[in-house]
Structure formats: C-alpha cells, structure tokens
C-alpha cells in the first residue's frame, strides 16, 4: 500500500468528518467491567499456577545435583576401582600365563608321581583305559596321559612294551621314568636284547 492510495482516500473531508461526528458511542460500563475483570482474573490465576508449580524446577535441580554428588563420592571412596581396558567380559583378555602355569604344574606333578594326580585322575579304571576319543568330553580337556597305566604295570613284559611305545611316541623322558619305576618294581628285570 502506497501512501498515495491512503491520501487519495482521505481527500474527501465530508465523509470522514461527518462520520467522526456521528461515531461517538462508547462501551457500556458493565461491558467495561466484565472485560477488565476477565483480564485481571486471567493474570491472577496464571500467577497462582506459577506460584504453585514454581518450586518444581529448583527442586529438580537440587535433586539432580545431590544425586550427582552422591555418585561422585561413592566412586571416589572405592580406591582400587578402575575401569577395565575392554569392558566386554566375553572378549576380555585373560593373562596367558594362567593356563600355562597350570599346565606346567600338572606336567611337573605327573613327572614327579609318574601318574596323574588324584584330583585329575579318572573316576574309574574303565575311563582311564579308554582311548581319549571314547572318554568323556571333559577328559579331552585334561592334558594327554603320559606314562604307563596300571594294567600295563601288572607284568614286567607289558610294562616294558609300554616303555617302548613311549619311546616310539617321542617321550624319552617319560619312558626313562617308567623304566626306573619298572626296575624298582622288578629288580630282576633285564631288558631284552633286540
């Protein structure tokens, strides 16, 4: 809208002036009172609601701050606590020397006793004599049994046969231990000449 358009309209003084003389009505007082009362009530009710709900925000802030502080204090009071390098337990690295040490200790015990320790011994002789492929699944988890079993040690001949098999399997140290045990058990035994 250009100002010129408004000016063109305003150039008729008779209509405008006559209308302004004509239009002198005012709002009835009761209507005035009703509108102003409505306006004041709207503000007052809004203020009341704001007063009632005004404490919620600071309360939420204080509660959040308190919980955060308590969490920080709890964490700081745990001295040796530290986050793992890899938080996923399924892929968490396990020190390799744990199993290695256990295997070494077991082998040493076998070497020392010439047989499995009691805690690792099979529950019965059948299981002990069964091949590894036929034994229980958990037996495969144990170190392979070295040396001769009790059945082989029943006679000097079978024992000697077992010692020869150990040598052929590449276990000369075990074979030597078995031989010493054979000589202790059968002092008159003499190895057959081949």
């Amino acid at each position: 809208m250009s100002k010129t358009d408004d000016k063109l309209y305003e150039t008729d003084p008779l209509v405008g002036a006559t209308y302004r003389e004509l239009a002198r009505e005012t709002v009835p007082p009761d209507v005035d009172a009703a509108v102003l009362t409505q306006a004041r009530r709207a503000v007052a009710s809004r203020s009341g609601i704001a007063r009632l709900t005004g404490w919620l925000r600071p309360l939420a802030f204080v509660a959040t701050a308190g919980l955060s502080l308590a969490l920080i204090l709890q964490l700081s009071n745990t001295p040796d606590w530290q986050l793992p390098d890899n938080p996923d337990p399924a892929v968490a690295p396990v020190p390799a020397d744990i199993f290695q040490d256990a295997a070494d200790r077991t082998a040493e015990e076998i070497r020392r006793l010439g047989q499995y320790p009691a805690m690792l011994a099979p529950p019965d002789s059948t299981a002990a004599t069964a091949p590894a492929s036929e034994s229980a699944p958990e037996a495969s988890l144990l170190p392979a049994r070295e040396g001769c079993d009790d059945q082989a040690r029943n006679s000097s001949g079978t024992w000697w046969q077992c010692i020869r098999e150990l040598e052929e399997r590449g276990l000369p140290e075990v074979a030597e231990q078995e031989l010493q045990a054979l000589l202790r058990a059968f002092p008159q035994f003499s190895a057959p000449q081949e």
């Binding site: 239009a23 709002v27 005035d32 503000v43």
Partner: peptide
C-alpha cells in the same frame, strides 16, 4: 507486558482501543 502478567498494561491497552472497537 500483559502476557508477562502485568494487568495494568492491559488496562491501558483496553482504554486506548475499546471505544473504536465497539463502534
């Protein structure tokens, strides 16, 4: 100002425009 809770501001506004709106 009235939106922010000042009822007096509305009274001034109302007095300015009530008669022209009524007419």
């Amino acid at each position: 100002r009235y939106r922010d809770g000042d009822a007096a501001a509305f009274e001034v506004l109302y007095l300015r425009h009530k008669d022209s709106l009524y007419r």
